[in-house]
Design a protein around this nucleic acid. Structure first.
Lengths: 341, 341
DNA sequence: ATGAAGTTTGACACCGGTGTCATAATGTCG
DNA sequence: CGACATTATGACACCGGTGTCAAACTTCAT
């Protein structure tokens, strides 16, 4: 009964006394095949524990029912920790793929290194999802490259020059607005922003702009002194806040471009003997799990990762099918916890 | 220059004026091919942005340079949250795969549902990594099934009946010992355990046994009343602790089978007005990120996820190569934070 | 010059499916 | 009953590589 190695459709054909073509059709429930033959074929297939060889099948059909995700790590050389926000995204993308019947190839890429998006070229995947806070200097030109090669891909967060329709992102500008509005309505007057307000981090820049513009509408200015640079790590947030305090910058409210930064900031504030939220209100961005666990718990702008994953996948699939897709902006939501109130 | 669709080795052969066979050899740096021809082929390949079609290649060679990971979710129906410990494992496994030149297919499986491990059968992957706190009733029989089909796989944490060599796990028993020793050396007398101390959760059971045995050596007994059932979620830990308190069980130290449980427990203890660690010391298991963020920060038994990922991958690769592998037990490490001291 | 050994190359079968086309079997209708 | 549509099946080319084998061409020693 059990042949050596894996069973092939020829084995089934042999046992069923039909041709291999018929087996192939029967297994894919083609209407061309007789009901009884179909049942017999299925039965034998099950008995032999037969599974279609995806390589052969994909080779013939020229598609893979697989998507690839390239996860760009934060520019820290830090070996152990991955931004939990992206892990959440990874989880929701995996789920979305499963729902659509696609497999998912995962790959981590160091931004600094030469990254390879050859999954599609090599027919491993039908399309690619790019995920990461990018440092876009070199990145942008590579995206152009992908476009030129007609590779199907969608990006999280990062705008693609000239092709905004390939982007799924949270409304970062709107998120910045929410933070500012909350500070304004609680009577805060002296705000600071911590993050990278440059083109290197498009998302951070948008958050900053939404924050700043809204404040300025209420005549609250955000001077250079009130902006501290940080990348998305706890240490970086800690140091940035530390230097603000060291420079004697006065502030009653702090908006961090990400939760990790905010967590570092809170640590620095506590160490300086400042009370949160009495002395300083703090708002982060992402709503990672830790935001709920720290003391005080962190108010933050939540990104809907479940929806984001679904949109990335469905947009990519539409793109693969050749459909037009439009840029997707997901609404952010302010979660109020103890760090403001 | 640019042909329609992706370039094939025939295209290169045509431009280089050699046969397709030679192109194939040249691209794989076979010593059989002349140095000059090789350079010419590579040059043209680069110009055409040629990438080997993995489907064709895998079909012929009957291997995929890909591993698959099946991530079993916790038995909560909870849509949004994935146990952060497993996400960490996922990250380290991804890195380990990349280091070995393998791709990784990720798939989430609900334990309750019929899970499919057909990645190897369908030649999508050369081997499979199973990851999850399992409910092993049905699980075990399926593992036997995989064994019978000669599928290459390794498991995290779950012992495979009769084949312990397929397991990579933390020394859970030793971890339980560490927790008990720490309580003993800080003079605790009344301990409780929260988790699932049954065969349904082998890891939890081992943690429990190590804990209990060590306590009993010092004549500290752990009666039925001092054990509360919980699955690995915050809510479950919260409720379990709540019911201990409601039952008037007296204790000065609490060992939770996972950090999530411990976090729930701490919440319940705080609500009951108990001080940590003065009234009750708490130790968790896993060292997830949140353990460091909560107040008080959580002492916990750390599992080395980086090493675990590497071992899972290297063991699986050895298994695929047909080598003998032995069960791997990773040493746990007690991290002391504010919740004990 | 000639046979042996070494180097480089091309022809061709093969991996295991899928899709097209021809053919056989059965049914329908004027 | 013959023409024709319908249904079910088999033969075969094909996807794009890899591996084997034989052949062509060098090089070198005899």
């Amino acid at each position: 009964m059990k042949t050596k190695g894996k069973a092939t459709s020829f084995d089934i054909a042999h046992f069923a006394g039909v041709s291999q073509s018929t087996v192939s059709r029967a297994l894919r429930n083609s209407p061309l095949v007789n009901e009884e033959t179909r049942r017999k074929v299925w039965e034998i297939a099950k008995k032999l524990n037969y599974k279609v060889d995806k390589n052969a099948s994909n080779l013939r059909t020229q598609q893979s029912a697989t998507l690839a995700i390239l996860l760009f790590e934060d520019p820290t050389g830090d070996e152990s920790q991955i931004n939990p926000f992206f892990l959440n995204m990874l989880g929701s993308i995996t789920r979305a793929c499963a729902k659509e019947g696609y497999d998912l190839l995962v790959s981590f890429q160091s931004i600094s290194q030469d990254w390879r998006a050859e999954y599609e070229d090599s027919h491993r995947a039908d399309g690619i999802i790019l995920l990461g806070y990018g440092d876009y200097m070199d990145y942008q030109s590579r995206l152009q490259n992908l476009l030129a090669q007609d590779t199907k891909f969608v990006c999280w967060g990062a705008k693609v020059e000239g092709r905004p329709d390939l982007t799924v992102s949270c409304d970062n500008y709107g998120g910045g607005e929410l933070a500012a509005q909350h500070f304004i309505s609680s009577g805060k007057k002296q705000c600071v922003f911590i993050g990278d307000a440059s083109e290197h981090s498009p998302e951070f820049l948008m958050r900053f702009k939404g924050f700043k513009d809204t404040l300025e509408q209420k005549s609250i200015s955000l001077s250079e002194r009130n902006i501290a640079n940080a990348i998305s790590t706890e240490e970086s947030g800690y140091h940035a806040t530390h230097s603000l305090l060291a420079n004697n910058v006065k502030f009653d409210s702090l908006f961090a471009a990400s939760d990790l930064i905010a967590i570092g900031a809170i640590k620095a504030l506590k160490e300086a003997g400042l009370k949160i939220p009495e002395d300083v209100s703090v708002i982060g961005f992402d709503n990672i799990a830790a935001a709920n666990y720290i003391t005080p718990s962190l108010s933050t702008v939540q990104q809907n990762t479940t929806l984001a994953g679904q949109m990335l996948v469905s947009n990519l699939l539409a793109l693969i099918k050749g459909e037009q897709i439009t840029e997707t902006l997901l609404p952010p939501k302010l979660i109020i916890r103890q760090s403001t109130s």
